[in-house]
Computed example of a mutant assay.
Amino acid sequence: MQLVVARIGRAHGIKGEVTVEVRTDEPEIRLGPGAVLATEPASTGPLTIETGRVHSGRLLLRFEGVRDRTAAEALRNTLLIADVDPEELPEDPEEFYDHQLMDLDVVLADGTEIGRITEITHLPSQDLFIVERPDGTEVMIPFVEEIVSEIDLEEQRAVITPPPGLIDESEAVVVSSRDEESAAAGPGTDGSAPVERGEDD
């Protein structure tokens, strides 16, 4: 499975380094020296990471064969893509990759079917499951431990204990505009960044 793990930003200095916008919680694994990454556009890659370092809170990478500022600037906005084993799990048992959560059945504790997860939206404050109900409507479920009580990957289901009004037919929080949510979320994660179940404040 191929997942986006970073986007190349501006050139840094004159020796071929670039800043990168990291899109994985495991940069030491995905973006370490020696890693070979596919790219989007594909014609830019593959790129092999030669060195990496943190400068002023940002990750800087240098790729093999990229030796000057001009070559580094030519890579700007390129997406870096890693091959990830679809069976691979994050180290923290409370974290999940997006692709592991997609299409899970969402049910209540008593087994009542709510729908299935069709999208995961990453907001600054929390992550949301976009759940398609059997009637075609969609409802947003915050991925917090007070609401999502269990993720069972073997049974392919997420068990929820929603507060009153969250999924009630008459008061369902229906997604009316995906574009609006996407704009609020900003650049999304790629699925390689683990999603951690948060705590409701």
Rank of each mutant, 00 (worst) to 15 (best):
V18P: 09
T121D: 05
P163H: 10
E155W: 08
E180Y: 10
T19R: 09
R116S: 12
I160S: 04
P124M: 13
D200T: 13
P163Q: 05
I141Q: 04
L104G: 03
V144F: 04
L128P: 04
L101M: 12
V84P: 01
D92Y: 06
L59H: 04
E181W: 15
D98S: 14
P124F: 12
G165R: 10
G191H: 07
T51F: 11
N77Y: 12
P46A: 01
F96H: 10
R76W: 01
V20H: 02
E119Q: 15
T137I: 02
P33E: 11
P187K: 11
G13D: 12
E146W: 01
L79W: 10
S125H: 08
G188Q: 15
A74I: 01
G188M: 08
E181D: 07
G186W: 11
E196D: 05
D105N: 15
D68V: 06
T19G: 06
I8M: 09
E146D: 13
E87Y: 06
R58E: 14
L153K: 03
T48N: 00
I160D: 00
V22Q: 07
D200F: 12
H99P: 02
D200G: 07
P46F: 03
V22H: 06
D201E: 13
I130Y: 06
R67E: 12
Q126R: 14
V173M: 13
G52Q: 11
A193H: 03
T189W: 13
D25Q: 13
R7Q: 06
E21Y: 08
Q100C: 00
E64A: 02
E145R: 14
L153E: 04
V18L: 05
E145Y: 08
A72K: 06
R178A: 12
S192I: 00
A38W: 01
R67C: 00
T189L: 11
A185W: 02
M1V: 07
V4L: 13
D110N: 14
E169W: 05
I120K: 03
R7F: 02
G52L: 05
S170G: 01
D85T: 11
D110H: 08
T44W: 00
G13W: 03
L61C: 03
E28W: 01
L59K: 09
D92V: 06
R10I: 02
E145H: 08
E181T: 13
P187N: 15
